[in-house]
Nucleic acid binder design. Sequence first.
DNA 1: TATGAATGAGTGTTCATTCAT
DNA 2: TATGAATGAACACTCATTCAT
Lengths: 196, 196, 196, 196
Amino acid sequence: MNVHSDAPPAKDEKRRQILEAALELFSDYGFHGASMAKLAEKAGVPVGTIYRHFKGKEELIHALYVEMKRERLAATLEGYDPAMSLRARFELFWMNTYAYCVTHPRKFKFTEQYAFSPYLRDVTKAIQIDMSSELARFFGDGYAQGVFKSLPPQILSALISGPLNALVTRAIADIVTLDQTDQQSVMDACWDAITV
Amino acid sequence: MNVHSDAPPAKDEKRRQILEAALELFSDYGFHGASMAKLAEKAGVPVGTIYRHFKGKEELIHALYVEMKRERLAATLEGYDPAMSLRARFELFWMNTYAYCVTHPRKFKFTEQYAFSPYLRDVTKAIQIDMSSELARFFGDGYAQGVFKSLPPQILSALISGPLNALVTRAIADIVTLDQTDQQSVMDACWDAITV
Amino acid sequence: MNVHSDAPPAKDEKRRQILEAALELFSDYGFHGASMAKLAEKAGVPVGTIYRHFKGKEELIHALYVEMKRERLAATLEGYDPAMSLRARFELFWMNTYAYCVTHPRKFKFTEQYAFSPYLRDVTKAIQIDMSSELARFFGDGYAQGVFKSLPPQILSALISGPLNALVTRAIADIVTLDQTDQQSVMDACWDAITV
Amino acid sequence: MNVHSDAPPAKDEKRRQILEAALELFSDYGFHGASMAKLAEKAGVPVGTIYRHFKGKEELIHALYVEMKRERLAATLEGYDPAMSLRARFELFWMNTYAYCVTHPRKFKFTEQYAFSPYLRDVTKAIQIDMSSELARFFGDGYAQGVFKSLPPQILSALISGPLNALVTRAIADIVTLDQTDQQSVMDACWDAITV
DNA sequence: TATGAATGAGTGTTCATTCAT
DNA sequence: TATGAATGAACACTCATTCAT
């Protein structure tokens, strides 16, 4: 236990400031549009400090991506209970994710930008490799109960996240607006897509 | 006088070379990773020549995007006949598009990169604004026949293109491979998603 | 006599258009700020045509300068009569020149810009080498009548043109405004400067 | 620890090197003729370093101009004593300035080039707006003593600096050479011009 | 003769990263 | 450990001039 705990650990605090500034600048101006100098200024730290926390720009972007993925998963699982029915879990995941993305457009935009950026080699391969145990369980139960189509989980996953991401993108860009009923309908449509 | 047309007009030929080199470099290295100098070298023209055909890098990217959209639409409509049934048209569009994207991964990647790039302002708004008359007719017929869910076409469209793009991305990245049967299944799933 | 004189000689007409456009662009944007392409566009002729009239940009600038000098001299001598008194000639030259410069600020600015530009080597040497016979006569008479200080004509000339140019520059830039009385006073002051 | 001050502070030293190289290149080749690359080479610093000291080329030129103005004023006031007679002050100012300009032709040329350059907008307005307190006092005394013509100081100033600049220009270009006697004569002529 | 597309060296400026302090 | 000035390769773009038509 830290006796002087009223002084927050400077190290992690700086790292946080840097990541926050990075999210803002990268989502608004892109990876190239945000220079390390601007980043340092926005974060309120000297440039050199960034390099003490991250090996370079690329690693910083990766680290931010990992954090975003983690946070998004946590949001997706908010209120999760293993005892919930398959359908209830589906609705929870879907609604949680949609709400999270629309509420945090910068986090969503950063992640999408990352996924499609040729900034880093072989990034796309990282898209689907990790699947949380809760989601794995969800798909496993669906197959076991004979509810899901017999397609590999990556494909079922694409049938859900595909429309969801597409619609969030359009919602953020103000091309379409989905009210509560629309969200429900789209969610139902996705359910139709993955079930027999 | 040149009776034979085997000497193509130099103007369009140069433009073609530039666009081809641009597609290759942009899809492989991104908008920032591909410099005008590298582009010129790849296209086999001096830098200055690019600026005779395009006002600048941004306009070049836009022009290439417009061409890609046009070509992809043409591919989507290959074999189209207005007399086809709703379901037949759906299958034609779906299969044509999937095949085109998987066959031309660079064209697909460029288009996706463009859509999510902060390189240009308000690009995302342009994603869905144009819809060909054939597609508009497709959705119109679907509503009229009471086959489609009563959701706006932008949403139905997202329910189709969302999974399709997601799966093409994964297929190109070798995360999943869809054989003919899988493609058929996913297409069916999309149909399930949009129909009542 | 040209029977077809109703069609103006195209050659000289184009040359005129080019020089007019050049005066406008050079005085507004400087020698470097005015590209040959913009010049051609402004003059309404193809770029290549400029090179048929002038060997290059440098020669064009020189030619324009020579023309400006010629025109300014003509303006200076407007109403000149060899029979006029020394003082009358002085006043005519002074007032004519001042009025011409203030009325044609672009012509004045171009000439000054030319004089001080390092664009061309050894240009300054050309400033004073030519003196019209009327001016030479003016100085000659002044010395002969014992009215002028015994200083070389280049120095007397500088005592007149120096203040004149300085004040025109300030007048054009709206730093000072010289009404008729002020002009008279400055002219008198210059007379005081050169006379014994 | 460096006890000796023979290691000058690197920061100001670099700035000095850059300004010195800038004076040389700008006065010899003009603002456009002197590229940042050549400037860096001449100054013995990498290009990027220039941008750490000056925001850009334009600011560098401005900074150099300000320094030249300051230095020239200091030279003009060399040996100044408020108790000196009006005439003595006039002669001090005139001779100091002439000597300074002829001794430092590059500084003179740079300043003239700056004044007439279309490189920067509204520069000419800055020519005369600042007048040192010593010069203001000089004109004030002249009016008070009834020695100067009743013309605004900007006009009297032009009657002095006009010929002076014109003659320095010609002297530098070797068109005229003013020996000590000539300088005295021209100075007297200027005095005649501004006094009643 | 008249044209304007083609040329490529050269421009001012930026930026991720390093390293002396 | 912490800093931020220094670095110089790389960038998008311009332009006077040429020359094939």
